[in-house]
Design a protein around this nucleic acid. Structure first.
Lengths: 153, 153
DNA sequence: GTGCTTGCAAACGTTTTGCAGACTC
DNA sequence: GAGTCTGCAAAACGTTTGCAAGCAC
């Protein structure tokens, strides 16, 4: 089971740049290292949906010696701080993105296309689960599977 | 991407016993072997939610030499025939059960409890996804994550 | 100088695969 | 006898961990 984040950025405090996050990191007793700065740059520049491997490749373009395990360790630390989240879009590797851009996904099991779910789509489900079962759904962590319009016809 | 099943049992034709499935298997050019019969017995006797490892243990109680890789190969074949499905309840191994008993799951990310989702809970989401996006959701393959009543309070 | 962070190598757990022999039909 | 299925060993995959050296503060 995932441990609750040690500290989650309160709403309205979302860091807007790599420097913001490095400051946050230092404030929590961590160090601002080159590999962290470059990873953060990659995250802020990306469109989201990056796998650890893709982020490693992006970082290694600028600093070839940064090891994949360092990427994983830093991604974990950034999650602990609430700066980023990861999602499972199906089989295969997890994808990481800034927490501020989190959104639900629909994945076609046939062609693999990823559709960003409009917020309203999940709202009804979230409400019903909360009222009937007291269950608070987290629609971001795992994608919703199915068949897209093209594949289901 | 998962290949479409070569042949899915049409509604109303769901096999009711290991023998039914072995007949189906033979009809599609396969063989009725001891390891397959025992695996099917285990599936029909189980409550569902069995991992490959658990099924292997159940089979090996009766036939100690059946290898885990044989279990995986047979589970794959049974999925191709539409007899069973697998679900991902979160991190960790997939679980397998008869297709006829498929149902959606809610998983608590904190305590790990598994709740079987009432059918009506998903119906609204399925309808909205179909109408707005043409997307046919498959709520069985991946569980819906969140926090149960106890952990979210 | 304290102690957090890194590179490396090796392990992890789940699942898949290549192969030669054994079995079903 | 043709062709499917099996056990075994080994690999694949994404991810985590132990360790000693290196760096930020």
């Amino acid at each position: 089971m995932s441990k609750p984040a040690a500290s989650v950025a309160p709403p309205g405090t979302a860091p807007r740049s790599a420097d913001d996050v490095l400051a946050l990191l230092r404030a929590s007793g961590g160090r601002a290292t080159p590999s962290r700065r470059i990873l953060l740059d990659a995250l802020f520049e990306s469109e989201g949906h990056c796998t650890a491997e893709e982020l490693a490749a992006a970082v290694q373009r600028r600093a070839p010696d940064v090891h994949l395990s360092t990427i994983y360790r830093n991604l974990e630390e950034l999650q602990r701080l609430g700066v980023i989240v990861h999602s499972h879009l199906g089989h295969g590797p997890a994808t990481y993105h800034l927490a501020s851009t989190a959104h639900a996904h629909l994945i076609c099991e046939e062609c693999g296309v990823t559709i960003e779910a409009p917020g309203e789509l999940l709202r009804g489900l979230a409400k019903a689960a909360k009222e009937k079962l007291g269950f608070v759904i987290d629609p971001y962590h795992f994608a919703i599977q199915g068949r897209c319009a093209r594949c289901s016809s």
